[in-house]
Design a protein around this nucleic acid. Sequence first.
RNA 1: GGAGAGGUGGCUGAGUGGUCGAAAGCGGCACCCUGCUAAGGUGUUAGUCUGAGCAAUCGGGCUCGAGGGUUCGAAUCCCUCCCUCUCCGCCA
Length: 422
Amino acid sequence: MLDPKYILENPDEVKESARKKGVNFDVDAFIKLDEKRRQLQTECDALRAEKNAANEKIAKLDGDEKQKAIAKMKNKGDEEKKLTEELKEAESKWTQLLLTAPGKISPETPEGKDDTENKELYTWGDLPKPDFEFKDHVALGLDLDILDIERGVKIAGSRNYFLKGDGALLELAILQYTLHKLASKGFTAFLPPLLVNYEAMQGTSYFPGGEEQTYTIESDDKYLIGTSEVPVASYHSGEILDESELPKLYAGYSYCFRREAGTYGKDTHGLYRIHQFQKVEQVVLCKNDMEESAKMHEMLLKNAEEVLQDLKLPYRVVAVCSGDMGQGQYYKNDIETWMPSRDSYGETHSCSTFLDFQSRRLNIKYKNAEGKKQFVHTLNNTCIASPRILIPLLEMYQNADGSVTIPEPLRPWMGGKDKIEA
RNA sequence: GGAGAGGUGGCUGAGUGGUCGAAAGCGGCACCCUGCUAAGGUGUUAGUCUGAGCAAUCGGGCUCGAGGGUUCGAAUCCCUCCCUCUCCGCCA
């Protein structure tokens, strides 16, 4: 969430952000609402001050005098109740509106409507030139008996699948490999709750707005996470950290659940867009400092790139344009990995800088040496997400005989096995 | 799921209708004193909203798990919910 003062003091900039992000946020309405809220607050405070003063006197009185004084205050209650209700209503409208305010946008962010206007920054690796006919990951998975989409759909509906045999082991190998890599770089591994409460969803700015994409457990008021960013970034919510503890480098490993509502007919083939996947996510809490944030962003991006480089998967890094960024994101890079069957790069990673947008909602502060309290900055980036990454992995590592070579770094996690064969 | 006990400031813990944002202790901070010193003294030590001021600062409101209610007045009484602990049941 934005600092409400920032909106009041920089209405034009907020309008500009809203326009660039394609977010519907009425700055003028917010300003009006804020005036109303403050006015009501002042009235309410005055009335309560009057009551408090009178009650202090009553406490010291006895007998008739006391009764008289009480009688005098009898009707104040209704007046207060009415004012309080008005104030609460104004405050709740104010908060609801504030939650929809768009975050700041970095100067490096290209302006654009949607993902077609993202800007390629650089590429890594050479695209394959196969001397045999490439199968796509679905065919490979079926032939090697490591993937079963048909039965996944039978059991769980569209966009569901089974990984089996070496397919199951391969996914775990990739995740394990990545998680250990991050641990060796000083990240703390987390196996977080997958089912969280509303506050965590709101704090990480998925709610309000993302309800349609989220599986809801109505009986218990819980939500299935779409990313471990939700519980991991919320881990310190409501806490005041010490500057010396920062930055916090966290690696969340979890299943992720997404309804993919409104995507009917889009990416229906294979493992690209599915309801359930596993992901190792990097989450950082750092000092409230632009340079530090930028440094962390770079680090998170490089960590993810390193995994792809280890796996020798060609990719490109794009600067995500304003219209394709989330409400709270200040700067965002996507990493897109080459997917032969799609004959294009496909999004596999997403690296975001939030500044204090999330930490305001989550109420995560830190105290510096002088005792000054500030909101932390938060960032996050995918480090690996599977089975989407199996698309390039299986396709790029296939051999003419239909087998798939297991990338070297993963072999220790596959019991030393170097090849998946039918 | 059943029965019971609880949720108070950074921590421990008092407080069952009035002067309580809250005793006391611990911890933290500041200053002072002192070479019997891992000691002593004094003071200070929540968050948030809002008003005045360039500012230091000063005033007001709200907050004792959350939300409602009763009352002139609620940490204290009533209702709902959440969470923690103990016992029983069930269970990976």
